[in-house]
Design a protein around this nucleic acid. Structure first.
Lengths: 195, 195, 195, 195
DNA sequence: AATGAATGAGGATTCATTCAT
DNA sequence: CATGAATGAATCCTCATTCAT
């Protein structure tokens, strides 16, 4: 009556929905969206198959919820990193760390990010997710940088992260440092030199 | 008028392999890798289903070939754009054009790019494709910029392109100009200011 | 008139697994293992195709189960025949009957036996089935004969049965009688005359 | 001009038919009749696929020819073994050797034998093959034994061979000796004791 | 509220065979 | 005479979803 997990009867299981969503992210990380099926997620969540369509009317509902959770989690981490920086120099360093160390230590997150982008490239519903993510990132950067710089810096982070992941040679930290410096210290704030 | 396409006998059809690969790219563009099946590609190429596995032992063989072709085509365009620039200013302008106009005019190419990245994130065989693509881009940029700048600029292009695509607000051209300027004109070539 | 078979709802059908296995044996009997497909079995069992892989993860799982049932049924009959014999003479007669009349009255059983042997010749999992079958036969014979005789008699039964089936001329009952007599009455129990 | 195999032009290749038949037997031995396809045989014979249906109108024509060759080869070996025996004792020993050593040393031959029996169990055309084989065996045995004994001995050989193959415990040679002795030395030649 | 059983559409692939060359 | 190219039927299997319990 008081023994926790064991007592989590098959019939009464609050939080099951959540567990399914988490399992879904795990499966996508391993097998990609293409390789994700209700069956596999059910197995990963240790939940009967019928439970899938009970909790989620649609496969896509589950997918969307999973990516929504993922985007928010990623976004949260980014925001916290920026919130932790006390001045612009710490902010620069935090950005470099995010690119060089944090996010893509886990290849699972790399996969998930790209899967999400892929969906977003075709489906507006997922694009809303990426848009919100980007907006939050930019707002976080604006704690330390002017809006234009924030926007460009955000794009730079994206590009460096991807290239780091899809390249075969390792990227050196000092190159990342240089890129961030150029984007954030540059004096070319005046009229654009290039047309 | 009496023959032409109709006379292309069903029995002898050189170039069919190629047509299938093209059709495959078209289908991926529309339905994503997840929505791409032999059946659909066969229909798109106007080719019987059995023809698929006759020409490609494996679904993955077709997929890999399709993305290989795509990556090369994209790479070619990039290289040509860079080769057409006669000095560094023209090179900057070419880069801005590539980001602002060319590549993502076609959402199909956006989708394909992300689908490829998604595969590359999980499968080394596809990573080899993205790696070669990136290497070629960098070499093309090195016609006009020093290696480090080329590398960073390449990442910036990536990031801006993606954000332009996944954002909901349109990106302004002058912002892109500014970003390229900062990355390529910066005087912060000395010792990195940030650690 | 209003229910019966028709009322056996398509949706709830206990014993369906069994019916499929039986149908599978029927199909093998008619078309051989090579000619047995999920489709055909599904049709024979009057069951939708998807039901096949729902009840059996694998085609081979179905096949193995079918032959397992068959081997047990054959084995049962043999054992009962032996159990019914009250003395050694009745046992001899029972053996003769088994060879001459029973088993191969039904050509279906002949086919099934050989199909099983064919599988057993290549796959240890099926060999386990034939081994168990043989072991049971021998044990049944040992009710009436010494172990060596039981073993040899069992082999003789096998050979006579096969030759009866694969020959084109009918075998005469008195020949079978003679063979059984020689194997079971012989006094050559001493040191083997042949090396 | 004189270099044998290399000179065997792809275009002129007498004996190709034979090579295909041999390859077919090899494939059946490995994969069974069910696993034998034109493609596989073509690959095994190192012959283009189109060559299959050129030389054999039908898959079954190839199959029948292959088994015909196999049955004859087996039959030949049996006959030679019997022909080599100079008296009845040597004949007995030859029989024991055939069962204990020769034929089923090669599991490939076991498989082929059972595959043939399986076909014969259903198809009269293959039954003609097994019938001829058995007739020849009997005739060979009749060099040394009376017709009835020959017939029964032949069946015994069959049964022992099969049981030896499908059992998991090894069979002892002296048991085989005993069985052959009983069948060939028995004095129960008089009126059958069993009805 | 929850689920095991069931289903039909669609997945990739293999195949014997045909035909133009 | 010989064959590479091509095809459509059939293979097994996976799947999202439905439904009776």
């Amino acid at each position: 009556m008081s023994d926790g997990a064991a007592a989590r009867s098959r019939r009464y299981d609050p939080g099951r929905r959540d567990r399914i969503v988490d399992a879904c992210l795990r499966v996508i990380g391993e097998a990609g969206v293409a390789g994700t099926s209700n069956r596999r997620v059910a197995a990963a969540a240790d939940v009967p198959l019928g439970s899938m369509t009970y909790h989620f009317t649609d496969t896509d509902e589950l997918l969307h919820e999973a990516f929504s959770r993922f985007a928010h989690a990623m976004s949260d981490r980014f925001e916290q990193a920026m919130a932790g920086a006390r001045d612009v120099d710490e902010a620069r360093r935090a950005v470099v760390d995010l690119i060089s160390v944090d996010v893509l230590a886990d290849p699972r997150e790399l996969v998930l990010t790209h899967e999400l982008y892929t969906l977003a490239a075709r489906d507006p519903r997922y694009r809303r997710l990426t848009h919100a993510w980007m907006a939050r990132s930019r707002r976080a950067l604006e704690r330390h940088f002017d809006p234009t710089t924030a926007r460009l810096l955000d794009a730079l982070i994206e590009g460096l992260t991807i290239h780091r992941a899809l390249d075969t040679e390792p990227h050196r930290r000092d190159e990342v440092v240089r890129a961030v410096d150029r984007m954030t210290r540059s004096s070319t704030a005046g009229p654009a030199a290039t047309r």
